[in-house]
Design a protein around this nucleic acid. Sequence first.
RNA 1: GGGCUCGUAGAUCAGUGGUAGAUCGCUUCCUUCGCAAGGAAGAGGCCCUGGGUUCAAAUCCCAGCGAGUCCA
Length: 921
Amino acid sequence: MSALEAEYRLDYFEENDFVRRECPECGAHFWTRDHDQELCGEPPCVEYSFIDNPGFEGEYSLEEMRENFLSFFEENGHERVDPYPVAANRWRDDVLLTQASIYDFQPLVTSGKTPPPANPLTISQPCIRMQDIDNVGKTGRHTMAFEMMAHHAFNTREDVDSDEYAYHGEVYWKDETVEYCDEFFTSLGADPEEITYIEDPWVGGGNAGPAIEVIYRGVELATLVFMSMEADPEGEYELKDGNRYSKMDTYIVDTGYGLERWTWVSQGTPTVYEAIYPEMIDFLTTNAGITHTDEEAALLHSASKLAGHMDIDEAEDMESARGEIAAGVGVDVSELEALMEPMEAVYAIADHCRTLAYMLGDGIVPSNVATGYLTRMVLRRTKRLCDTVGVDAPLDELVDMQAERLGYENRDTIRDIVRTEVEKYRETLERGGRRVEQLAQEYAERDEPIPTEELLELYDSHGIQPDMVEKIAEEVGASVEIPDDFYSLVAGRHDAGEAMRDTEERDERVAELPDTEKLYYEDQTRTEFEAVILDVIDRAEGFDVVLDQTMFYPEGGGQPADRGTISTDDGSYAVSDVQEDEGVVLHRVEEEPEKGALVRGRVDPERRQRLMAHHTATHIVGHATREVLGEHIRQAGAQKGVESARLDVRHYDRIGREQVKEIERIANHLVRDNVPVTEEWPHRNEAEAEHGFDLYQGGIPPGERIRLIHVAEDVQACGGTHVSRTGDIGAIKIVSTERVQDGVERLTFSAGAAAIEATQETEDALYEAAAVLDVSPAEVPGTAERFFEEWKARGKEIEALTEELAELRAGEGEVVELGEATAVIQRLDADSDELRATANALVGEGKVAVLGSGADGAQFVVAVPDGVGINAGEVVGTLADRVGGGGGGPPDFAQGGGPDAGKLDEALEDAPDVLKRVLNA
RNA sequence: GGGCUCGUAGAUCAGUGGUAGAUCGCUUCCUUCGCAAGGAAGAGGCCCUGGGUUCAAAUCCCAGCGAGUCCA
């Protein structure tokens, strides 16, 4: 029994003659106008009834249905809001991708800290659900990319203070929401008797509330969620997840109408894909040369229809249901599979291309982390699908077809990224293919199967799917066994070492203090101020001073804290660090000043100036980088300093030297233009409407008003301190670029005086090199190259001379006759190369060589010609032992030595005896 | 953010602490009217960089740089 039963007793249901029923199959409670209805109306209790039997008066395309929905709610008092990016990690750090329209407003709006862009509002939000990736194309109804059409209303209880939350009062609640739903259905010509409202309380992410599933002709077309509770151990409601919840001050209408499903129902096609991607499917089937006879087409149609009637929720269900379907349409399973599989691939390609268009269009750059990695996975999967089904159109063209349809303006960049990625993938496959081939050959020769361990490494370290290994291995004749739990074995390699997250508890004493007034926003060039000490907190190291107002900038937004002094009548205190704790600024000093004292604060002006210059320069470099590399450039992190600053940007390639120069040119041009740097505090909704999401390069601040910094055309939400005109920066010098991750480039640069210092450092290195070579700086590259070439030539010459010398020396040593063999024992103080060469020369003459050198410790080389029964390694071992070392090597050529050069001669004198002893031993 | 793998000739890669290797490509010659092919000879290596261990490091250890890949 639902704990929320009373929540569903709506006046609207009462007034419109609805009845509440319990489904005898699944036990769900539902509301309907049809007094004879018994079942809940949803699979598995009932089957789809809209296939080949469209549910509305007209057929709609995706675009038409979207417009229909948005304008319906617009006419009903809702403001239309532009969709948010699919990369939800741009405004929240708990998820990567946008999976529902409500994601757009979490957590700042739903918690009441920030007002919604409009209230009530309607939106059609593109979403991506990676969880469904295996089902796409197969089940007939799953897509990875979809649009969630929605209307939202944000309410607060009347009895809370009107200024406690960013919105106040009730806009509308349950009755109106259901009424809108009913009306939207009837506006499309649907029969209200066929609509079922199922009670299905919703729980998720610490929030909960009553919710209603809206079913029409067997398919769920909308979910109406009434978010109104939060997790609370003391709460009065216990919900289906076993936790207790209590009512919140805010309550939010969160609806979701699946655009694809509505479009599908309006057309009544066997699968959702045919309804939403008709042109793309035509293009792909033609391109891949897939043709069907009328008979085959009819077969496919009825097979898909049959599948549609079943409750197929997973690709696996599909596979097991195939037999049943084949029997249903009266053909062989294999015949059916041969027909369906290429079409499933085509459906998936269409869907994946749309997913990619969303991801890349919203500025995600493929990489090996986060959303970038997901994008890369989808892209590679799509490419594989294209290859297996025989689509030979370039992938960038396919993605572009979707990007065009979705109205993206950065289509050239999207294509460029796709091309780069496809090329990278091709290289990976080529590299991997060679590797597998080699490995497979090795195991084929030994007649062993390729072990699982190798498969794991191939996948984990080299990105080669096991089935690809199988294919290649087959060609070479090696066997492979892929364990069923392969992917969990992979997971096992990634030891889940949960990192400890230290949660800092807020100091209660600080919490009671009023927010510090921030003077640094009033005049960023002033460095002196007066204030009163409100409190002094004893810390493990020093004291934190809280003032009523301050000029000191606390560390934040990648800008380090100011330093300086605060002075009272009793003395002066050096401020070594400044931090902010929810509005209260803490000044770290070593000695304890008196609470309540009047102080004069003085910020280190030189440091502040340099930090401001670097901060403004960071905006300028970001702007210049975007101009040079493209609109997709987005900040991935930044850190400002006194000597230099760094800016990490997302980009799909390395930044070349020419591009660095161009960025530097544009940045410095902006500096020379000496444009004013201005700030404003607009309402966030106006700011977003005017500048879009790119405002938030360094994260999203809460609150109704946000601070914007303008530098020429560049606008960013930013809390840092800035110079007043770009000319104050003086100059910007990019010192280095590095690839900090795949898809993230780090630009390190210096501004102002630091720029000159950085340039001087580089020049010093050049001048020093020039002085060493005794040439002018301009001649350094040429000279260095010449020296390097000459050095290499000389090395070769030495090698040749060493060999010549060795031949000449070869006769100089003491000759010892050992029966049929002759040995030469010789001391020559030279390096090991020379010893080796001499030994080789002696062996060339058919003699055993025993050579010793005292040039660097004691070294031996012993070489034995073919057919002489002496183990060189053994000889060296014995000799080296005498000089306190060791040695060894193959029987015909051994080396060794030791530190005690004084015993070298002694050892060599014993050599004849050693030789005789080991001869034929 | 974490794990794993790899850096050796122009390219692709072998290499087990003990003399730096193969295949393709390149140069020259032979064969040919010429080309392809074939035959012969040859050139081409700071073995990524810097430390450490060792008598001895391409090889083992550490750090850095560069590249690839899997996971969250």
